[in-house]
Amino acid sequence: MSVLIPDEVLKASGMSENELMLELIILLFQQKKIGIGKAANLVNMNLLQFQHELAIRKISVHYEIADLETDIKNLQKLGRI
């Protein structure tokens, strides 16, 4: 599913398309609608970059058991553990 945001909204916000996307993803992350890994991926940042962006905004990182399990699976796939 794609969402079309009118140019008028983008102009009114004074943000670029990427900035608006970052704001939306951070909002979804804060509301625990998406995890940190997915959020970072959606804004084309690595995890450390996204965490840095959150730190700048003084937003705490919520790291759930499911996040840990996903990280372990990904590390296993990469042969890191």
Rank of each mutant, 00 (worst) to 15 (best):
N18G: 03
E53A: 12
L20R: 03
F29K: 13
V3P: 01
P6A: 08
E69H: 12
M21T: 05
L68K: 15
L27S: 15
S2Y: 08
G37I: 05
L48R: 14
K38D: 13
L4I: 06
N46K: 07
I26W: 00
I81E: 11
N74V: 07
N44E: 13
L28H: 07
V43E: 07
F50H: 06
K33H: 12
I81P: 04
E8Q: 06
L22Y: 01
F50E: 02
I81Q: 06
S13Q: 00
I34S: 04
S60I: 05
I25E: 01
M15L: 15
L27E: 15
M1Q: 11
L4S: 12
L4C: 01
K38A: 14
V9K: 07
V43F: 03
I59N: 02
Q31D: 14
L48E: 14
L10F: 08
A55L: 01
L78I: 05
F50Y: 13
A66N: 13
E64N: 09
K32T: 09
A12Q: 11
K11N: 10
S60A: 08
I5K: 02
A12I: 04
E8S: 05
G37R: 14
I59T: 05
I25R: 00
I5A: 01
L42V: 02
D71N: 13
I26G: 03
L24H: 02
Y63P: 01
M1K: 12
L24W: 02
K11Y: 08
Q49E: 15
I65W: 14
A66W: 14
H52V: 02
D71I: 08
H52G: 00
K33A: 14
N44Y: 06
I34T: 11
G35I: 00
F29A: 10
K38T: 15
V61R: 00
E19Y: 06
M45V: 02
Q30S: 05
M21Y: 04
H62D: 10
S13M: 07
L10S: 03
L47R: 14
L48W: 04
L54Y: 04
L4V: 08
G79I: 14
N46T: 06
I25W: 00
V3T: 12
